[in-house]
Structure formats: structure tokens, C-alpha cells
Computed example of a mutant assay.
Amino acid sequence: MNRPDPARRVRLRRRLRTAGFLSPWLAGFGVFFAYPLAATVYFSFMHYNQIRPPTFVGLRNWSYVLERMPLFGPALWNTLWLVVVMVTLRVVFGLGIGLLATRVKLGKGLLRTLFYLPCLVPPVAATVAFVFLLNPGTGPVNGILSALGLPSPGWFTDPAWAKPSLVLLSLWGIGDLMVVFLAALLDVPREQYEAAELDGAGPLATFRYVTWPSITPVVTFAVVTGVVQTMQYYTQALVAGRMASGVSIGPGTVVQPGYPDHSTLTVPQLVYSLGFQNFNTGAACVLSLVLFALAMSVTALLMRRRGGLLRAED
């Protein structure tokens, strides 16, 4: 009779112990990610109006979304535009303000507090305030621009200025990134700055060869999380479009998103409109999967060891 291998029993106990520690995460992953993803894939091949049982329609939903849906192109373009422009400017401004906060000696605590305070404002309240401030007829911003003899844009009522207005709104709440970059900048060893100063390196050379290599992982984190969040951009664009349109919203009122002229329409808004206003669950699931694939592709591109933001040794 063969006796059980003691080493195998030890390995089994370790695996069971590891599985026990991972069980909360595994349960959460299965319930909140794996199952919804599998259900989304399943319903993308079904005709389902959330009332009658789903019926299999093959690739009809995919064909409709990718070939015949008129708003898919504008929504995808707006989402990608916001990803490129908004994420880039937020990272640049957040890093710049973080650098400024490390240089200021007098009142640095007050400065950091003032930059972080806008992050505490709820997104809906911040968007309503911005729409009021940038109102082309009664807003104080255009009043100041007119008094200075400068052109007064239409902001949220002009298709050419609607997305830049949303970018300004996101830059106003840049304090979250400022805190992240500030922590990374303060963590750079002072000895490296002293060595660079002894070698005669200027500010640009010091930033390039000392600061940037040290904060690259944090920049990668900021870019990746920014891309994922902007791919899900919904509340601010929807509230800004509805407020700028002047349409009163009440019980039973259905307002199509994207005002003005679909310039603020994003893919998440289109998903909600299809799934919960038009009860076209299959097409909404197709859009969700397209958005998921884009987010995963961009994230994988940014996280590459070579060619991405991360260096090979990180």
C-alpha cells in the first residue's frame, strides 16, 4: 500500500489555504464581472425587450450596430475624442500642478486644498454650475469676454465647443490627479536631485533624467485609469446636454442624449438609451462589448513592457 507523499500533502494544503484567502475576490469576480460579461455576450445574440423571453437572432444585432445604426459613428468618435484630448490634458495639467505644489513654499497647504476642493463637488452639481457659468446669453464668462472685446463662444450650445467645454469641466476637477502626482513627486529621492545639480543639469534635464523615470509607473496608472473612466463617460455629458437644451425634465419625459447635434453623445449614453429607453437589450449589449474591447485594447497597448508607457525593467 502506497503512503501519501508528504510533499504533495503540503502543496495541497498550501493551495487550499491560498484558495481560501482568494475566495472573497473570486466570488466578487464571478458575481460582478464574469457572470455579467457572459450574460452580455449571450444577450448580444438575442432579441430581448426585457418583457418577453429572449429569442436567438444570430449576428443581427451586431450587423445593426456596426452597419446600420446612424448614431454609433458619432458616439464612438465623441468617446475616442474625449479619451485622447481629456485624458492627455488631465495628465499634463495634473502633473504640472503637482510640480507647482512641490515648488511653492509659502501657503502650499492652502494651494493644495484649493486645487483639491473641486473634486468634492458632486458631478451633477458641478456640471449644472458650469452650464450656468458658460451660458452664452446670461453666463458671467461670456460677459467678461465681451467686456474685454474677445469672442464669446456658444459653449454647451455650440457643437464645435460642447466637447471642449466638457474638457474644461474635467480640468476644473483636476485635484484628484494632482494628489496622486504630488505623492509620486515627493517620493523621488532627494539624493538624485542633488547629484543632478552637482553635474550641472538644468530643470529640463533634471525632469527628464531624474523625475520622469521615477514617476513613470504613476503616470501609467493615471493614463490607464483615465482611459477606463473616460470610456465610461456618461453623467457630465448627459446633464450638460439636457441643461443646455432648455428642455424641462419631468416624470415620463424622454430626452434624447447628445445635445447639441449629437456632439456630446457618448457610447455609454447610447447604451442606456438603447437598453432602457428603447428596450433593445441586444443592441445595447453589442455596444457594451465594443466599448469593453476598446478599453481592453487601449489598456493592453499602454501596459506593454516595450513600446508602451512602462519600461522593460518596471
Score class of each variant (00 low, 15 high):
residue 100 L to Q: 09
residue 116 Y to A: 01
residue 91 V to F: 10
residue 93 F to E: 09
residue 97 I to D: 02
residue 125 A to G: 05
residue 91 V to W: 12
residue 76 L to A: 08
residue 101 A to Y: 07
residue 109 G to K: 10
residue 121 V to S: 01
residue 85 V to E: 12
residue 124 V to W: 12
residue 123 P to Q: 11
residue 121 V to D: 01
residue 124 V to Q: 03
residue 105 K to V: 12
residue 99 L to T: 01
residue 106 L to P: 00
residue 126 A to W: 09
residue 111 L to H: 03
residue 84 V to R: 14
residue 87 V to M: 08
residue 88 T to G: 15
residue 113 T to S: 08
residue 117 L to I: 09
residue 78 N to G: 03
residue 121 V to P: 01
residue 113 T to K: 10
residue 97 I to E: 04
residue 97 I to C: 04
residue 77 W to K: 12
residue 116 Y to K: 00
residue 81 W to L: 14
residue 98 G to Y: 11
residue 125 A to R: 08
residue 123 P to V: 04
residue 108 K to H: 09
residue 113 T to F: 14
residue 81 W to R: 14
residue 98 G to E: 02
residue 118 P to M: 00
residue 112 R to Q: 05
residue 91 V to K: 13
residue 76 L to G: 01
residue 112 R to A: 03
residue 78 N to D: 06
residue 119 C to K: 03
residue 95 L to K: 03
residue 105 K to E: 13
residue 102 T to C: 06
residue 79 T to Y: 11
residue 110 L to V: 08
residue 84 V to E: 05
residue 80 L to A: 14
residue 76 L to H: 05
residue 115 F to I: 10
residue 77 W to R: 14
residue 96 G to S: 06
residue 94 G to Y: 10
residue 86 M to D: 15
residue 110 L to P: 03
residue 98 G to S: 05
residue 107 G to V: 08
residue 104 V to D: 07
residue 114 L to N: 02
residue 115 F to Q: 00
residue 77 W to D: 04
residue 118 P to H: 04
residue 117 L to P: 03
residue 84 V to T: 15
residue 80 L to V: 15
residue 86 M to W: 15
residue 96 G to L: 05
residue 114 L to G: 02
residue 124 V to G: 01
residue 125 A to V: 15
residue 82 L to A: 09
residue 91 V to M: 07
residue 118 P to R: 01
residue 126 A to R: 07
residue 81 W to G: 00
residue 90 R to W: 08
residue 100 L to G: 07
residue 120 L to M: 10
residue 101 A to P: 02
residue 82 L to G: 08
residue 101 A to W: 11
residue 91 V to H: 08
residue 82 L to D: 04
residue 87 V to D: 08
residue 126 A to S: 11
residue 112 R to V: 03
residue 99 L to R: 01
residue 90 R to C: 12
residue 98 G to C: 03
residue 111 L to E: 05
residue 124 V to R: 04
residue 116 Y to D: 00
residue 108 K to T: 08
residue 112 R to H: 02
residue 82 L to S: 11
residue 76 L to V: 09
residue 123 P to D: 12
residue 101 A to N: 09
residue 103 R to T: 04
residue 89 L to C: 13
residue 92 V to K: 03
residue 81 W to Y: 15
residue 104 V to H: 09
residue 79 T to E: 04
residue 79 T to R: 13
residue 124 V to H: 05
residue 118 P to L: 03
residue 86 M to Y: 15
residue 119 C to V: 15
residue 101 A to V: 14
residue 103 R to P: 08
residue 122 P to M: 02
residue 85 V to K: 13
residue 119 C to Q: 13
residue 78 N to S: 06
residue 110 L to D: 02
residue 108 K to N: 04
residue 83 V to M: 13
residue 94 G to M: 10
residue 79 T to N: 06
residue 108 K to V: 09
residue 78 N to K: 09
residue 107 G to Q: 11
residue 113 T to I: 10
residue 105 K to Q: 10
residue 112 R to I: 06
residue 95 L to Q: 06
